[in-house]
Amino acid sequence: MKPKLLTAAAIVFIIALVFVFKSTVSGTPHVYKKSEIMMDTVITLTVVSNSQKKADEAIGAAFNNLRRFERNWSFFDAGSDVSAINKNAGVRPVKVSDDTFDLTKKAVEKAKWTGGAFNPAIGPAMVLWDFKNKKRPTDSQLKEVLQLLDYTQIVFNDNDSSIMLKDKGMLLDLGGIAKGYAADKTAELLKKAGMKAGIASIGGDISAWGTRPDGSPWRVGIRAPRGAPDDLAGVLSLKDLAVSTGGDYERFFIEDGIRYHHILNPATGYPARDFQSVTVVNPEGVVTDALDTGIFAMDREKALRFIKTNNLMAYLVFADGSTFTSENLRELLENR
């Protein structure tokens, strides 16, 4: 063989080898993580990527999108779509962004599914409770607003994507579903940016896709309702699934030994009494978020029936501390 030919062959061989190795051996992707406080909660985005630059860019873009969601859906921000809808309750339809329209539609859909246990029109009852300053409303105050909690009076116009609350005094509150929806959309966005695996955690609403770099599923802890903040009741192994937990420990105050928390029963306006926490696992975050609230607001029997008929994956901690794990979740849940 002539040396020149040998040189050329060697160089081609090396280049080919390096490329082969780069694509196979370089399978040491790293986990990149960033937390921000937004939407009144902690948002942590975790992605698996070979490149820190790409990961940072994707995470940055996802946070920007979440900021937009926050502006659209904040209950308190006067400039949000939700505030505009609420201000014009009983007055006129309000044109909203596509995301708001889609989310609100989904919220009403889930309300119908749960027979109103999950209720995006809970606003008028919610504003009477002040968990920060430990103030609760009187019976008559609550009774007065109960007929305003009618989610069937949320009217949609598909032609100009506008939403109207029919009755004056109604208040749309997407707090029980927005985070799960945001987790879905964030996971979608990060996937589109080339992140093959990751976790979008919007408060307790989590959407996990792909696997950890070592190929094992993501591990998501479920908080123990009565323990310290980092005590876990169990650990879920998730792959391409979302999970949400609603708990009576998130926002609450205790008065005369009674715990008043933020998950209200739309039928009474009072905090729901049958659970300490409800965890739902489903491919869609918008489902898990709406259902953790919805199931929490049901009574024990109705909740179990609802889980069974819909074949849902759920982990329940009842008010007495006993637990229930749906059969289809047992394989994914490691109890602590």
């Binding site: 986990v31 993580k33 937390s35 921000e36 406080i37 902690v42 942590t44 975790t46 976790i199 955690s201 307790g204 609403d205 989590i206 996990a208 950890r212 070592d214 993501w218 591990r219 998501v220 802890g221 479920i222 908080r223 980092d230 876990l232 650990v235 879920l236 999970v243 949400s244 937990t245 965890t279």
Partner: peptide
């Protein structure tokens, strides 16, 4: 609204990746 993070040291593998 304070977030304190430690960067550059990986989390222990046995821990959880998120909490709900």
């Amino acid at each position: 609204r304070v977030v304190i993070t430690v960067e550059g040291t990986p989390a222990p593998p046995k821990g959880v990746d998120a909490t709900t």
